[in-house]
Design a binder for these strands. Structure first.
Lengths: 204, 204
DNA sequence: AGGAAAAGTCTACACGATGTCGATTTTTAC
DNA sequence: GTAAAAATCGACATCGTGTAGACTTTTCCT
């Protein structure tokens, strides 16, 4: 709750640094698209954001920190969207809805999501961010499977373990498809949905 | 067929460089395990192999080339093993056999396989190597699915597309599990096998 | 054996990217 | 309007990379 007395039409002060921070992250995202992580240099990012290297280090301690912040910003989006999604009782509908939402996510944020996956090993912070995101998905899938009649539990053929495998299937399939085209993503989604439905026992 | 006249007990000459090359690759693999790709420096590899940086550049043009060679050596193994596997007619048996073989592969070469996956984007040569390997698996899975009665074709619910998704599921699931322990790998295998069987229509 | 060519090795160098420091300027808040 | 905080800059030290040229060892042929 910032701004204790909203009188005087002046909007809450926004630090100049906040704008720069956003500019840096935006530039980083653009460069990631153009040249990829390795080729992208700290100098490039600074230049794109309209400052020098030295100034950039005032905001972030390294290239990895910049990218971590970018991933965090994007992943925040996913969590919000995830929370806002209405729960459906009917498993078939739930699965279809989940897959449609996933396609949207990858269409909008495919680049950053792929980057997050790629850097999960080398940058522990990003790894944690992505793991947490995956856990949200796995929990959701587990719930759907159980509602579809799959036995709850962690044994290899029970809901929890299956959900994990299905999550990785979706991650990897979308990862590859999103590098190609929107059409491929759509196809990939249909295939994943089919396997998910089958695994849930909802298809012959 | 080297050595045109096997007389004289002298074994076929092995270039000194061949030994070094192997030492370099072995060292690289060890360091990959100890410090990971990023932390590992060309100097480290050279030192481990008993030569200086300068000498190493005589064999490989860069760190990436060294790792590419390591991946190539490992992947060669996979292909051989893949070729040597007897084909089973009964789908259920084929799936079980394939999963058992996959567990073995990841137990033996997990580290290099994970590295190959990680570097697939940044090092095109490794990407090709790994893609080709994946294609072998996808083809094999497709064949099994078709023999189990899944309709052939590339539509989202037909054998080819399903095989691709299942392949990525296995890759990613094993990738994560092989970082943990052999037990996890075994569990992961059981889960993947179950989903594969279900997708093939071989389980209620 | 012996000597030239090929294979292997080393040290030194140039380059590019990183991250740090202290000085300086701009913003913010009172 | 001014002092503290925020932001920016340029210069520097460091480290890893890749290249070049000189030198040594191995291989192979006669």
């Amino acid at each position: 709750m910032p701004g204790h007395h909203p009188a005087r039409g002046r909007r809450a002060a926004e630090r100049k640094g906040d704008v720069r921070e956003r500019a840096i992250l935006d530039t980083c995202e653009a460069l990631l698209e153009q040249k990829g992580y390795d080729a992208m240099t700290v100098g490039d990012i600074a230049q794109g954001a309209g400052i020098t290297r030295g100034a950039l280090y005032f905001y972030y301690g390294s290239k990895q920190e910049v990218v971590t912040a970018l991933v965090a910003r994007t992943v925040e989006h996913l969590w919000e969207r995830s929370r806002a999604t209405a729960q459906t009782d009917e498993p078939r509908q739930a699965i279809t809805a989940a897959m449609r939402r996933t396609v949207e996510l990858w269409n909008e944020h495919g680049l950053v999501m792929r980057t997050a996956i790629d850097l999960s090993l080398t940058v522990p912070e990003i790894g944690e961010l992505w793991n947490h995101t995956a856990d949200l998905f796995i929990t959701a899938i587990t719930a759907v499977l159980e509602r579809a009649g799959i036995q709850a539990g962690t044994a290899p053929d029970q809901a929890s373990a299956m959900a994990r495998a299905l999550c990785w299937m979706i991650e990897r399939t979308f990862y590859h498809a999103s590098q190609e085209s929107r059409e491929k993503l759509q196809d990939a989604s249909a295939t994943c949905e089919h396997i998910w439905l089958t695994s849930a026992g909802l298809i012959t």
